[in-house]
Amino acid sequence: MGMGRSDEELMLSCRDGDEGAFEILYRRYERPILSFIYRMVTNATDAEDLCQETFLRIVRAKKRYRADGKFKTWLFRIALNLCRDRIRRMKFRSSSSLDVPVSSRDCEDAEIRQAVVDPLPDPAKRAETEEMRRLVQQAFTKLTEDQRSVVILREYHALKFPEIAEIMKCPVGTAKSLNYRGHQKLLEILSEHIE
């Protein structure tokens, strides 16, 4: 029921008071949005909270919704804005930094979640994968915020450049350039694991 309807159709129904339509949209995007935010802020607890906030904003803005843009880019844009706000606040308060490796608590948190989604039977293989995951996560912290956003949207969400440009509110060429530089930087940082 409703599963074949487009995001925009569901959002219009949601605007008109159909709570079921909102739940379908939520279930459709809960995982990608949560993952996107998690990779941006690298803290599972914050990611969960910001994910909820993203959907709350959708609900609060529903009366003004007009189906003249893609729902998906709108949703990611809200999530990205919340992430930027969160990252700025972290920098502003100097209590934590994305340039610093994630805390042990977050590592534990992440490991628990990784274990749920990626159960590898071989302990050695698992340790190797876990180490690589940690290196990748750290490598992303060396990218600028915009590079990180674009590369995450490309690599993990397979979004096309016009969509990313719409989310980032930048020209398509800028999105491409950020993506290229981001990938080059990751190649440089992870070079010994790439050869």
Partner: peptide, 24 residues
């Protein structure tokens, strides 16, 4: 670039907890 893409996929996303929707 192909290898990099594979390496990047080792970083899985976060899994939603069952109660997330209820909290929302």
């Amino acid at each position: 670039l192909t290898k990099l893409s594979q390496v990047l996929q080792t970083w899985n996303g976060s899994e939603p907890t069952p109660l997330m929707y209820e909290k929302l």
